[in-house]
Design a protein around this nucleic acid. Structure first.
Lengths: 220, 220
DNA sequence: TTGTGATTGTGAATACTATCACAAATCAGA
DNA sequence: TCTGATTTGTGATAGTATTCACAATCACAA
């Protein structure tokens, strides 16, 4: 079955499945069932089978899915067989932390370069990488057309950073800023919203205090 | 209308609305319409009105919503009028970056303390905060019952960190680790999944290359 | 007072997502 | 080969979420 319309939710889960499969591979497992994947990802086995069946029949009735094969197929679907390079805009504490640690091993992605507009920072080192001038972004994206940019600038500078990236031809952005950004139709921007996650946790914690019997969420 | 069952999606959006309202307040605006909120959050105005109407009738027909009043009400609903303190587990690059920068101003939350198990790190400074021994977590949570813990440990140490927190009585956790964690029913854990976000971006970018006419997602 | 234009809150309709439940297929062991 | 225990893939169903569209309401000006 060829995928026509696939929801973002499904794509997110495919990413989770791929991560679980890499883990299973490390542990030397060669077969997984939908139930195992489901349990590791905290969802139902039917959802796993439904997600995978959108793209093909990867499983074998009676046994399950071959770990290596399914992983190869998922990476093909996601496009992560050969992951694009990642560049970081903003050499503040978060930008540098990402550059140095790769956020504790973000499967397959490599952080290629880090940029800042502050002349005082340019040339200094972030781990082993020199901080480069924001003016160089254009050239780097030209040389290396498929790039994901991470925006990790200080508050208020997000839109300027994004505009610079768009002008340089960048098509995919992950933003750590909280500002509502003006984004053209052909650019994909995703957000890491730590403060929203904290709000959701606060809400849940304080609601439970008021009524401990309440379930976590209405839909689960 | 009293809220009986509210989805997590709605709560996330309430957090977005609150952020927009704080911005509007800074700009000196005293009234916002559902259309303005919607445009800033990238959704439809009907969705905004629906979300807000779950909890009450905050708007005025013909004009819109009073910025101050709505913000107060949203913070009451979210429980963020007086936000809980946040502690950080793991004084690696991300943990320290969070501690130092507060992730570029995460509205209202204060990062109270940072912990690590590495004896070589304990006592050293992370910005102005001394890195404390993980053994002290228990005492800190006892003193300050409502706490959100952020897990920012190295790969593989996530479950140990979580178990420690649970034992100390922590009920709300935000994890930057990618491992599938075993979580008791009464603990709320949320994840910041940078590598999944990158996967989604990669998928979207590479699918567009193959078929530029395709819309971003099936449901929008 | 009356009219005009704007905006909310919500019933109804639509669109989307998750779950159920089972036929078909596979495996392993006797 | 046959039998029983598994597990997939999917039609049908149930459950959620979003959008449409409009009566009710409000602000304001003439």
């Amino acid at each position: 079955m060829i995928a026509e319309k696939v929801s973002e939710k499904t794509i997110r889960r495919l990413s989770h499945y791929a991560r679980c499969l890499r883990l299973a591979k490390l542990k030397g497992e060669s077969i997984v069932t939908s139930r195992q994947l489901a349990s590791n990802c905290g969802i139902s086995s039917a959802a796993v089978r439904r997600d995978l069946s959108i793209y093909g029949e990867f499983g074998k009735q009676g046994s399950g899915y071959n770990v290596d094969d399914l992983l190869v197929n998922l990476e093909k679907i996601l496009g992560t067989t050969d992951p694009p390079p990642v560049i970081i805009i903003g050499a503040g504490s978060i930008g540098c932390a990402l550059m140095v640690s790769g956020l504790n091993g973000t499967g397959g992605y490599s952080y290629e370069a880090i940029f800042d507009i502050d002349p005082g920072k340019i040339g200094k080192l972030c781990g082993e990488s020199p901080i480069r001038s924001a003016e160089e972004i254009h050239g780097v994206i030209k040389d290396n057309h498929e790039v994901i940019a991470v925006i990790a600038v200080t508050r208020g500078a997000g839109q300027a950073a994004l505009d610079l990236l768009i002008q340089a031809g960048c098509k995919a952005v992950l933003s750590f800023t909280l500002e509502p950004l003006k984004v053209p139709e052909d650019i994909e921007v995703r957000y890491v919203e730590v403060s929203t996650e904290l709000d959701v946790l606060t809400h849940s914690m304080r609601r439970k205090e008021r009524d401990p019997a309440m379930p976590k969420w209405s839909h689960s």
